[in-house]
Amino acid sequence: MGEFLLRRVALAVPTLLLAMTAVFVLARVVPGDPALVILGDQASLEALAALRERLGLDRPILQQYLDFLLGILRGDLGRSLVTGKSVWAEVLAVIPYTIELTLAAIVIGVVLGVPLGVYAAVHRNALPDTLTRLFSLAGLSFPAFVSAILLLLAFAIELRWFPVISAPKVDDPLDRLRHLALPAFNIGLIMTAYVTRVTRSSMLNVLGEDYVRTARAKGIGMRAVLWRHALRNALIPVATVVGLYLGTLIGNSVLTEIVFNRPGLGKLILGALNQRDYTLLQGLMVFFAGFIVLANAATDIAYGIIDPRVRYK
């Protein structure tokens, strides 16, 4: 196990370097002058030169690249051009909201999606299966902001069950939950569609395995075979796929936060875009890239813990 852990962590290092390089290339080598993008066409030459110097854009590209990597190594993601605060401070101020939202969505997705997927697999090709498949395909077809607007219209504007603008009071747990409900339900339903689909196909594979037939032949009831033997094995690919889904989940939470006007990373990105806060945007990309690479490594390690066969591949 120790060797597997070490190998997986060692693999994350070059991947991380590659991801950071990709962000750097994207941010620097694209056509156009970042200083010009930030200040606009009307800026004076002096202002442009001053900003270039402040951003370190006047130095040789290799030097910039090394500074960028060394900064990340020290845990420095840069500072916001607009507020002057460090990217970390900006991220830490809003990240609890985003974590709350995505965790709630994952819980909704797994709690609803796994039983639905099992149910569809057991009733394969019958009406409940067809309905479940249609539901999950429809769920996957909704862009997150469209479903968010529909939920907002129905439950916040027409029925007034939930607040239109999601700005919870931090110290009131009940109020927080009320503000969380609609946005979390929005991403959670899309996630449910996804989990249902994956669980169904994974369950179908497992149900055809010899050990399931053996268990049935031994006289174990269908219900016990299903939940104790089959589901446990079917969940392994589901866990990986949920890990891979993280990227989509982040994208969906960005869109959902914008619709519900909810604080979080999504609104932070939108603000950085609107204010041309180029350094904040770059810092956020580094943050996301790092997070994704580490999350993937963590998923693989979790996979190795659940399924010992993975460790020896």
């Binding site: 070059p14 990709a22 994207l26 993008v37 875009l273 890239a289 993937n296």
Partner: peptide, 24 residues
């Protein structure tokens, strides 16, 4: 292959957003 793995796991929306924000 390892570059593709990074690209594949990066949020589509954020990557698109970053590129369009830079290119206009």
């Amino acid at each position: 292959t390892s570059l593709l793995d990074v690209l594949l796991s990066f949020p589509t929306l954020l990557l698109g957003l970053m590129v369009v924000a830079m290119l206009g």
